[in-house]
Simulated scan of single mutants.
Amino acid sequence: MDDCLGSVLDLLKKTNQEQNTLFMWAPDHGSQWPHERQNVYDGALKMPFIARWPGKIKPGTKTDALCSLVDILPTFIDAAGGNVDELVTKCGGQDFDGKSVLPILLGQKSEHHKAVYGVVSYGPIEAYPMRSIRTKKFQYIWNIDSHFQYPSNWTMEGLPAFESMNKLWKSWEEKAKTDAFAAERIRAEKYRPPEELYDIQQDPYEMKNLADDPSYQDVLAAMRQKLKTWMKQQGDNGDNAYHAEINPEDPFFEKVFCRQKIVNIKVDMIWNNPGERTNVRLTSPVWIAKIHYTLDGSEPTKDSPLYTKPFTVKPRITIKAKGFWDGDETPTRELKYWGPTPTHIYEQMHLKPIFWP
């Protein structure tokens, strides 16, 4: 990265454009760690921003003004002598989301936005829509589908691209067995509440969620309303960019977490055992769901046995399972186990996203 920046600056010097060029640099996200990248916490959204304009911007200038990447375009227009309002009018009247930060860079102002916003949606594999609003004092996060487990790349197994990340994650899980703080960080990464509120000034690493604190309910309501107002202005209904069609024939999708209201039935062979017994594991992306199952082919209900841990069965049996939570439920999943196969693993996966209001 340093070499690339140096090459650009060298080119400006060679072409005698250095003194006449506003140079700005920023990454596309913050640190690449759990609770940071692919989230809307400060660790993901707060990132370095460098601006250089010899003779215009005073070297060593720093600011804590709230700025966003949407401010870059109007800043360049402003720096080039253009009029943003006139340009907007000529282009149809649609206002820019951002505004020029040139007055901040030139030391003419110390404040910019009163709040900035964060958005994460992703596609059908890592779908976990989040929205946030950040002021200088507070950060409010809306986890739109909080009943799903967060599909972190760190927890994915069997994919070479995430091998090093998963190895590190497993070391954290091991530490969590004896360390209460580590256990809480693991839980917080995987299982998100519907709303999160943090006092950034007192809690810069966002460890203490104030959303349920009675003394912060007015702040929570105000931040929630501001976020909803902004989303409406953006045409964002909170359900975009992650209901895409996917190819169920692609084996890649058999290895990854998928955001769906389902129950998975996994059957693992136990070697060297009489009667070809097998372990049965029931899982669901809906982490708050209670999974009930039957072994006689009947439809599972809330009165059926509750799944709490893996159990063993013998061949020639029909396993049915269903998840229940908050008045909602998954479709019934069925697996007929007649004995071992060459793979010794059965897994019924529903790969096409389910559409719901």
Score class of each variant (00 low, 15 high):
residue 179 D to H: 00
residue 49 F to N: 07
residue 104 I to R: 02
residue 106 L to H: 05
residue 76 F to V: 14
residue 57 I to R: 04
residue 58 K to S: 14
residue 79 A to P: 07
residue 178 T to F: 02
residue 79 A to N: 07
residue 57 I to Y: 07
residue 163 E to L: 03
residue 87 L to Y: 03
residue 99 K to V: 06
residue 113 H to G: 06
residue 98 G to A: 08
residue 52 R to I: 13
residue 115 A to M: 06
residue 107 G to M: 06
residue 51 A to V: 11
residue 77 I to E: 10
residue 70 V to S: 14
residue 55 G to V: 10
residue 177 K to H: 03
residue 93 G to W: 09
residue 71 D to S: 02
residue 81 G to F: 04
residue 128 Y to D: 13
residue 166 N to F: 03
residue 167 K to R: 03
residue 50 I to E: 13
residue 84 V to A: 05
residue 92 G to L: 03
residue 173 E to V: 00
residue 136 K to C: 06
residue 169 W to N: 02
residue 91 C to S: 15
residue 160 P to I: 05
residue 136 K to Y: 05
residue 174 E to N: 02
residue 79 A to V: 04
residue 156 M to C: 02
residue 97 D to Q: 13
residue 174 E to F: 00
residue 76 F to E: 06
residue 124 P to F: 07
residue 148 F to C: 09
residue 91 C to W: 08
residue 122 Y to A: 13
residue 176 A to M: 02
residue 125 I to N: 10
residue 53 W to K: 11
residue 165 M to L: 04
residue 68 S to A: 15
residue 51 A to S: 12
residue 163 E to D: 04
residue 165 M to V: 00
residue 161 A to F: 05
residue 152 S to I: 12
residue 133 I to N: 07
residue 179 D to K: 00
residue 110 S to V: 11
residue 96 F to R: 05
residue 145 D to Y: 07
residue 172 W to S: 00
residue 80 A to S: 12
residue 117 Y to K: 06
residue 51 A to N: 11
residue 99 K to Y: 08
residue 147 H to G: 07
residue 100 S to N: 09
residue 150 Y to Q: 10
residue 101 V to G: 02
residue 161 A to Y: 04
residue 145 D to K: 09
residue 126 E to W: 09
residue 164 S to I: 01
residue 160 P to L: 09
residue 100 S to K: 06
residue 132 S to G: 13
residue 80 A to M: 10
residue 104 I to A: 08
residue 153 N to S: 14
residue 151 P to A: 15
residue 63 T to Q: 10
residue 154 W to V: 01
residue 57 I to A: 11
residue 162 F to L: 10
residue 119 V to R: 05
residue 141 I to L: 14
residue 47 M to T: 15
residue 92 G to P: 04
residue 122 Y to Q: 13
residue 116 V to P: 04
residue 83 N to I: 09
residue 142 W to L: 14
residue 112 H to V: 06
residue 47 M to W: 04
residue 120 V to P: 01
residue 89 T to L: 11
